[in-house]
């Protein structure tokens, strides 16, 4: 998490009606609460370890967050995803396509099993098409972008639950 991401989250939290916010990204945790006594109970409960399961109970309490800021990292963070899921991210700006052509079936759908070599989508830059591979074996759990949408560098495209 970058300072700006944390700032954005604090801001988001301040404007929300939530009592607590607990986020874990890449092993880094952020615990926000309106109750000053909650400090020990939140972050302190998982000292030092990046226990993937710790995020789950807190996440359940958090409603779906409206993505407030454009930076993909900050906006995507509050979603309720198990920590061991892995995002396939855009390697550059471009247009996302879920299928090789309008007539073709999509590369993947929710629940599909993929191998590291499986093609999962296509990114177009000025008529140059690059096929994106999963890079990891597992199950497609979430598709974050719609067909034909412009995506930015680093944006989450697809979440995979590793096998």
């Amino acid at each position: 998490m970058k300072p700006a991401d944390i700032e954005a989250l604090v801001d988001l939290f301040g404007k929300s009606g939530w009592d607590e916010l607990h986020i874990e990204i890449d092993g880094e945790e952020l615990f926000l609460s309106r109750d000053s006594r909650a400090r020990g109970a939140g972050a302190g409960a998982v000292p030092g370890t990046a226990a993937p399961m710790a995020a789950a109970p807190a996440a359940a309490a958090v409603a779906v967050a409206p993505p407030a800021a454009p930076p993909a990292a900050a906006a995507a963070a509050p979603a309720a995803r198990p920590a061991h899921w892995v995002a396939i991210k855009a390697a550059n700006l471009g247009t996302y396509y879920r299928a090789a052509s309008p007539e073709a079936p999509p590369y993947v759908t929710l629940g599909a099993r993929v191998s590291a070599e499986s093609e999962v989508c296509m990114i177009e830059v000025m008529k140059l098409f690059t096929t994106i591979r999963a890079g990891i074996a597992g199950t497609v759990r979430e598709i974050c972008v719609s067909d034909g949408q412009m995506v930015e560098f680093g944006q989450d495209l697809i979440w995979i639950e590793p096998a």
Binding site: A72, N92, L93, G94, E124, V125, Q155
Partner: peptide
Amino acid sequence: AVCLGPAQATKSYLDIGLVLHAAKA
């Protein structure tokens, strides 16, 4: 603001295709 690519200029600011694509999109 739209993010073209990583920090290296050759993969962001210097990539004509990315710049044009972003302007059009």
